[in-house]
Amino acid sequence: MISEGHKNYELMLNLQLGIRYSVGKNASITRALKPADFDPKEKFWTRFPTEGSKCTPPHQSVDFRWKDYCPMVFRHLREMLGIDPVNYMLAICGSDALRELSSPGKSGCLFYLTQDD
C-alpha cells in the first residue's frame, strides 16, 4: 500500500491526477473513432504546476507533465467494455491509496493496483 512517506507517494498522486484529468476531459466527447486516433503520435502533453492552471487544478505534489496517449481510443475501449467513467475514476483516483506491485522480471517495472484490482 502506498501512503504518505512512501518513496513513490508523489508518483501515485501524479498518476491519479493525470488519469482524473484525462478521463474527465474526454468523457463527454462522442464521435466515431478515426484512423488518426490510433496513431502513436496522437498524444497530448499537459503541464500540472502545483499552483494549478486554467486547465488543471492546484495540487500538493511537485510540478509534473502528463502525456496522454491516444485518448479517444482508450475512451472508446472503456465505453465498449461497459466501464462507467465515474466508477473508473473513483476506483483509481478515489480516497483509497493504490497498491504497488514490483515485477519479478529484469525490467523492475512497477504496477499499480486499485483496491478492487
Score class of each variant (00 low, 15 high):
38 F>I: 00
40 P>Q: 13
80 M>D: 10
28 S>K: 12
72 M>K: 11
51 E>T: 12
80 M>R: 12
113 L>A: 15
97 A>N: 13
27 A>M: 07
56 T>W: 05
95 S>K: 12
71 P>H: 02
3 S>W: 04
18 G>D: 00
44 F>W: 09
49 P>T: 04
41 K>S: 10
87 N>T: 08
51 E>N: 05
67 K>Q: 12
82 G>A: 05
54 K>E: 13
53 S>V: 06
65 R>P: 00
25 K>G: 01
77 L>A: 10
106 K>F: 04
104 P>Y: 11
14 N>E: 15
113 L>D: 02
79 E>L: 10
42 E>K: 13
24 G>P: 04
17 L>M: 10
99 R>M: 09
64 F>G: 06
67 K>S: 06
17 L>S: 14
16 Q>W: 00
7 K>A: 07
4 E>F: 08
95 S>L: 06
60 Q>V: 01
97 A>Q: 03
38 F>C: 03
2 I>K: 02
6 H>N: 13
74 F>P: 02
12 M>H: 07
30 T>R: 10
117 D>W: 04
13 L>A: 07
14 N>K: 15
61 S>Y: 07
116 D>H: 05
45 W>N: 06
94 G>I: 09
8 N>P: 03
96 D>K: 05
69 Y>A: 07
3 S>F: 08
104 P>V: 10
92 I>E: 05
14 N>G: 14
69 Y>G: 03
116 D>K: 12
55 C>L: 10
47 R>Y: 11
83 I>W: 09
41 K>L: 08
37 D>T: 01
63 D>P: 10
66 W>M: 09
77 L>T: 05
101 L>E: 14
60 Q>S: 09
54 K>L: 10
47 R>W: 03
37 D>M: 00
38 F>N: 07
70 C>R: 15
25 K>C: 02
32 A>L: 05
85 P>E: 00
14 N>Q: 15
9 Y>G: 07
30 T>L: 06
70 C>N: 14
52 G>Y: 08
82 G>Y: 04
10 E>L: 15
16 Q>R: 15
110 L>S: 05
33 L>Y: 09
92 I>Q: 04
7 K>V: 11
77 L>M: 07
72 M>R: 14
101 L>T: 04
13 L>E: 14
100 E>M: 15
31 R>W: 01
101 L>A: 10
63 D>S: 10
42 E>Q: 14
85 P>K: 03
48 F>M: 08
19 I>G: 00
42 E>W: 06
70 C>G: 01
115 Q>K: 13
19 I>A: 11
21 Y>M: 03
52 G>T: 04
22 S>T: 14
24 G>N: 14
2 I>T: 02
22 S>Y: 00
99 R>C: 07
85 P>Q: 02
74 F>I: 03
65 R>A: 08
78 R>E: 05
3 S>T: 13
93 C>M: 02
72 M>S: 11
91 A>E: 13
111 F>K: 08
46 T>I: 14
79 E>Q: 13
16 Q>E: 04
72 M>W: 08
103 S>Q: 07
73 V>E: 03
49 P>A: 03
11 L>I: 10
76 H>D: 12
22 S>R: 04
51 E>D: 06
115 Q>A: 13
69 Y>V: 01
89 M>R: 13
55 C>E: 11
29 I>Q: 08
92 I>T: 05
5 G>P: 07
98 L>F: 08
